[in-house]
């Protein structure tokens, strides 16, 4: 079992970024030399509307300590309305995951455009620090429970 006290523990955060905005925002943060923590693992998606509950939960299952989804500001979607569908889904999902006991700071959503390099770095830092404060995520993280005596 991983532990916060483990030396050199850094949070692992999976970021699903829309390729038309937040992904380019990450690029801009890079070329503009804004610093942000190296804990972010980016998965490029065609639209925040592509991100469903399965993808988010799969990241937690595989050991992510936090998940961050970022898309275009409402009104700016490349596909006109993908992020508007996503918005309802995210609001509902986040409240639902908190209902079953996921810590509120594990899961983050944001709207970041391609021109907001600084905003991207700031949000990445904020997400990292919030997740770091919680320590490693054990809820929804799958492990092989091989010890059969533990079942009883």
């Amino acid at each position: 079992m991983r532990d916060r006290s483990q030396e050199g523990w850094e949070p692992k955060i999976v970021a699903f970024l829309c390729r038309w905005c937040s992904y380019a925002g990450a690029d801009l943060a890079g070329v503009s030399r804004y610093q942000y923590p190296p804990s972010i693992r980016i998965v490029r998606v065609p639209c925040s509307g592509r991100v469903n509950a399965q993808l988010i939960l799969d990241a937690f299952k595989a050991g992510a300590d936090g998940v961050w989804v970022s898309g275009c500001h409402p009104g700016d979607c490349h596909y006109i309305s993908g992020n508007l569908y996503a918005r309802r889904r995210f609001v509902l999902l986040k409240r639902f995951l908190e209902f079953v006991g996921l810590e509120p700071d594990r899961l983050h959503f944001s709207w970041i455009s391609a021109s907001e390099g600084e905003g991207f770095a700031e949000k990445a830092t904020e997400v990292t620090e919030k997740v770091r404060a919680l320590g490693p995520c054990k809820r929804l993280h799958k492990e092989f429970d091989s010890n059969q005596e533990n079942i009883w």
């Binding site: 409402p74 009104g75 309305s81 508007l84 569908y85 918005r87 309802r88 889904r89 995210f90 609001v91 509902l92 986040k94 409240r95 908190e98 509120p104 959503f109 944001s110 709207w111």
Partner: peptide
Amino acid sequence: LPLSTYRQDDPDLDIVSEP
């Protein structure tokens, strides 16, 4: 059905948490 539609003026993401 609510998840197959949207409104421009739906509440934004700042309402995600802590109902």
